[in-house]
Design a protein around this nucleic acid. Structure first.
Length: 929
RNA sequence: GCCCGGAUGGUGGAAUGGUAGACACGAAGGACUUAAAAUCCUUUGACUUUACGGUUGUGGGGGUUCAAGUCCCCCUCCGGGUACCA
């Protein structure tokens, strides 16, 4: 019987649905395992072959775990809110809900063809009210919480209000936007509005004025991770900096915990590193500088407190509030012009043009240690958003300060013994300090750093400024609060209305979900309000509702929790379901979410943990990043000004133009010339110069995109080779985590393998040719080698090598003409995770009536692996290792002599020949001398 | 600039410090076939030899080791992340 993948795959997919084979529920008798894919945004283009890579890997692992007896939760859903649907709506008037549903249907159809074991009864969509109810609910909880730095957790805002009433800010150690100090009576004297305004300074979800990334073209603000090199990640439009009153999440409060938590996670080092850098912890000091002839003083942040004697000027960010206060009348015009100039520049222009610019404020600051007066400058190389927006400049030991000093001819004062700062600054953090002025002028009790290493000097300076009250030790994080408002339509509405004071209030929880209203226009209103401004009666009682919507990461921050209990109307997730499934054991997805989703999710989860809504502190225990599938484009070479195309290896003889050709009409780089003529009317009458009767195309690795004609749709592969071949081939392509171009050149190999496997059962006849005879030693050895290899490889996500092992095993069994049921049925179980359709078919052909998904993973018996004259590796005194050949009678027996694999080793061993060796197959053991 | 990765045949890629190139593609030759497709068999890193075999070989240069693709140092090139973060 021929291997007919089409009918087999259709049959078993229907069977799985009918028998709800993939439906799971909590089962206390079995250990749980939670395998999650990063859910997709359903774009209009559908899936290409790159998308299923991670899904196939997680599917293999899920099925493997299930065969091992775990109760596996493996759900899928859609990240359905997003920009493309809205932009499409603006262009065509099609409601985003309509296009989103259509795209989801298409995605589902494509996913269904690949044979995944998702429990679709748990599907979530972020745009559905019964889902986003819980996004809104979480937001309300964040509004009603503040972060207590002493307890290191979120606490009810009511607790903070109570403290303000009794003792003001005395003893309060809370994460806040701005350090405030007031007494209980001052608090009591505040108006209701003032109190509300004050509380916003502490809430975890708060409305605040902050510098935001404003994208005029998209008409919305963007989070830091949505901007790259001054352009929006979606669309690539210019972004500018602007102060706006926006909803924000106090993610920065969790910076230390987000950093510490990384150590407990089984993630790749590179991903942890990326997150570490994004959180950007830096230990330093804050120091007060007073302004000469004024009562103003200001604070700077530095990690190089040791260089305080090298400060020759100060620099303020142009956006700093201090600029206005410190500018002298004489300098006013220059400063205003400079500030205006920087404001006008987009982020992109600032990045492109790194030339030194700045202006003198007219004021002088007093160095608190030396009492020296030093000029205060304003320059855009200092950022308003980091530290205090003001720095002490040490041109001798900082490259940026050095460039500035050279440009404006300011003093450069070196502090490290023997360093040369005539050409460039000395930034290295190693060397011996010198030039401490207090030593030179013999100031009593003054700080002297001479002779210390930089490290010691930093520590000593910190202690000194702390003791003298000139400053304090401070840890700064690069991680900022997340801007949470978007001026868009297609997102979650905020459960927020504005009271008579114009202050934000939360809707009562029984009014949730606050559903997204209908609008007749997806653009901003004429008054400049977001699209929700078009909604009729967008009110709660008589109060105006918030018109912004939440950003993309809102819905994706807790979706993994919702899968545990997707239809619950009383809670995000019930305690029972949460206590059973706990958190994600294995999460597979791309690295592009390292600084976005994976930070926000961890933050969101930690917050929910603090308010005891969930039982685990981290959402994703193990994370594997699948590589990207790039496109492999093909080219044909048209001879200039003709309609003649020349094959790759002959093209150098002509003057040719390379033209992208659809990879779907090329096979193994050989062009289907007939299909090419039909591909585009322009080529109807194309002529070809062939080599060896073939037209060979050139190729290049490029991004997979429509314009390069290199997009390969998985449906096409499934149609041609079947889903099992697609699954095997995607895994066979190379290591999961590595990026690689899609290239169908090798797909015949895995397809052949499946056919060979098929023939083990049918031996080219129409009936099953399986016997119940006892397997031979050789057959058992071949099978158990496979069990060992595949089990090990799956655990290590090395799917490509396990497929090689299958090929070897099937070849061996084929040459042994093995048709023993005992061997073949175990082989099928092993293959189930990789190629579930054919496994299910053959499993039933062997007479089983249950699904192969519920079979038991074969048990390894090492004794079958032992063999005379096999090569084993053993270690010598736990140190050196070498290879021996075992004599004929076997295992775990004492061996009298050994034959050494290497001549050199033999020589070296001559005087050290061990007396007795205990050999355990495939294990490293010590030799007893 | 900084932080990660990586470099192995014509190609994709295998190798707990222990016979480099598993497995697969492609290519060449052969069997079956009127022919093609499919299938099966053989060969396939390079150089050298009629042959047995020999030499060489994991981006380059050093080192550690009885033994290095693998560990250490330096260099070249490529990919990714990130950036006036003080």
């Amino acid at each position: 019987m021929e291997y007919n993948f089409k009918s087999i795959e259709e049959k078993w997919r229907a069977y799985w649905v009918e028998n709800a084979v993939y439906k799971v529920k909590e089962d206390e008798t079995k250990p749980k395992y939670y395998v999650l894919d990063m859910f997709p945004y359903p774009s209009g283009a559908g899936l290409h072959v790159g998308h299923p890579l991670g899904y196939i890997a997680s599917d293999i692992y899920s099925r493997y775990k299930r065969l091992q007896g775990f109760n596996v939760l493996h759900p899928m859903g859609y990240d359905a809110y997003g920009l493309p649907a809205e932009q499409y709506a603006i262009q065509t008037g099609q409601h985003p809900d309509v296009t989103t549903k259509k795209n989801i249907a298409r995605y589902r159809e494509q996913l269904d063809k690949i044979g995944f074991c998702y429990d679709w009864s748990r599907e979530v969509r972020t745009c559905e009210p019964n889902y986003y109810k819980w996004t809104q609910w979480a937001f309300i909880q964040m509004f009603n919480s503040y972060y207590d730095n002493t307890l290191q957790k979120a606490m009810p805002i009511a607790t903070l209000i109570e403290t303000f009433k009794t003792q003001g800010t005395e003893g309060v150690n809370a994460a806040c936007s701005e350090e405030l100090a007031f007494t209980a009576s001052e608090w009591a004297a505040k108006s209701e509005k003032e109190q509300q305004e004050t509380l916003l300074n502490y809430r975890i979800a708060y409305l605040g004025d902050s510098m935001v990334n404003w994208c005029p073209k998209l008409g919305t603000v963007l989070a830091n991770d949505e901007v790259s090199e001054g352009l929006s990640v979606r669309g690539g439009y210019p972004v500018e900096q602007k102060v706006m009153r926006q909803w924000c999440l106090r993610v920065s409060a969790y910076a230390q915990r987000l950093l510490d938590g990384l150590d407990t996670l089984d993630w790749s080092d590179s991903l942890k590193e990326t997150q570490k850098n994004w959180i950007g912890r830096s230990e330093g000091a804050e120091m007060q500088f007073s302004v000469k002839d004024s009562d103003i003083d200001f604070t700077i942040f530095t990690t190089r407190a040791d260089t305080v004697f090298g400060v020759t000027f100060m620099v303020l960010a142009p956006e700093s509030e201090l600029v206005d206060q410190l500018t002298t009348p004489a300098q006013r015009a220059d400063v205003d012009a400079y500030v205006l100039h920087t404001k006008k520049r987009t982020e992109r222009e600032r990045i492109a043009d790194r030339s030194v610019s700045g202006v003198f404020s007219g004021s002088y600051a007093i160095n608190p240690l030396t009492k020296e007066a030093i000029p205060v400058w304003i320059s855009d190389y200092v950022l308003a958003g980091y530290g205090t927006g003001a720095i002490m400049a040490v041109p001798a030991h900082d490259g940026r300060d050095y460039a500035f000093a050279k440009h404006f001819d300011l003093e450069i004062r070196p502090l490290i013994e023997g360093c040369d700062v005539s050409e460039e600054s000395f930034d290295a953090k190693e060397g011996i300090m010198t030039n401490s002025p207090c030593a030179a002028h013999a100031i009593e009790g003054g700080l002297v750093l001479n002779g210390l290493t930089i490290k010691e000097a930093i520590a000593k300076t910190k202690t000194y400024i702390k003791e003298t009250g000139l400053g304090r030790v401070k840890i700064n994080f690069r991680l900022r609060d997340a801007i949470f408002s978007r001026q868009r339509y297609w997102g979650e509405p905020f459960p927020v209305y504005y009271d008579a004071n114009g202050m934000p209030q939360m809707l009562p929880e029984n009014k949730l979900p606050l559903e997204l209203p209908e609008v007749d226009n997806f653009l901003p209103t004429e008054a400049g309000d977001p699209p929700l401004g078009h909604a009729k009666d967008w009110k709660y009682m008589d109060y105006k509702l918030e018109m912004c919507t939440m950003p993309g990461f809102a819905g994706s921050s807790a979706y993994y929790l919702r899968y545990m209990d997707p239809t619950n109307t009383e809670a995000l997730v019930s305690t029972k379901a949460n206590n059973y499934w706990r958190n994600v054991d294995l999460y597979i997805g791309g690295t592009e979410h390292a600084t976005g989703h994976l930070v926000y999710s961890r933050f969101w989860n930690k917050f929910l943990f603090d308010i005891e809504a969930v039982c685990e502190n981290e959402p994703f225990k193990k994370l594997v990043n699948q590589g990207m599938i790039q496109g492999r484009s093909n080219f044909v070479y048209r001879i200039k000004d003709t309609n003649t195309f020349v094959s790759l290896n002959l093209k150098d003889q002509y003057d040719v133009t390379p033209i992208h050709v659809d990879v779907n009409i090329v096979s193994n780089d050989q062009l289907d010339t007939e299909a090419f003529c039909n591909w585009n009317p322009e080529y109807n009458s194309a002529e070809f110069i062939l080599e060896d009767g073939k037209y060979i195309c050139g190729w290049a690795v490029e991004k997979m995109s429509k314009s390069m004609y290199n997009v390969v749709n998985p449906d096409v592969i499934v149609e041609k080779f079947g889903a099992d071949t697609l699954r095997l081939y995607e895994m066979f392509l190379g290591p999961l985590e590595q990026s690689k171009p899609w290239d169908t050149n090798g797909i015949d190999g895995v397809h052949r393998f499946i056919k060979k496997l098929w023939n083990l059962f049918y031996a080219n006849t129409d009936t099953l040719q399986v016997t119940d005879a006892e397997p031979t030693k050789e057959e058992l050895k071949s099978l158990h080698k496979l069990i060992k290899k595949v089990s090990f490889d799956i655990e290590h996500f090395s799917f490509n090598t396990s497929i090689s092992a299958f090929m070897i095993c099937v070849n061996e069994l084929a040459s042994l003409k093995c048709n023993k049921r005992a061997i073949l049925s175990e082989l099928i179980v092993l293959l189930t995770p990789f190629a579930p359709h054919i496994a299910e078919e053959l499993w039933h052909e062997l007479g089983n009536t249950n699904t192969v998904c519920d079979a038991a993973w074969p048990t390894l018996n090492e004794t079958f692996l032992i063999e005379a004259n096999a090569v084993y590796t053993i270690s010598f005194n736990g140190k050196a290792r070498f290879t021996i050949e075992l004599p004929a009678d076997m295992p775990s027996k004492e061996v009298e002599s050994i034959a050494l694999g290497h001549e050199t080793t033999a020589k070296w061993m001559e005087d050290k020949t061990p007396k007795k060796i205990i050999v355990v197959p495939k294990k490293i053991v010590n030799i007893v001398l």
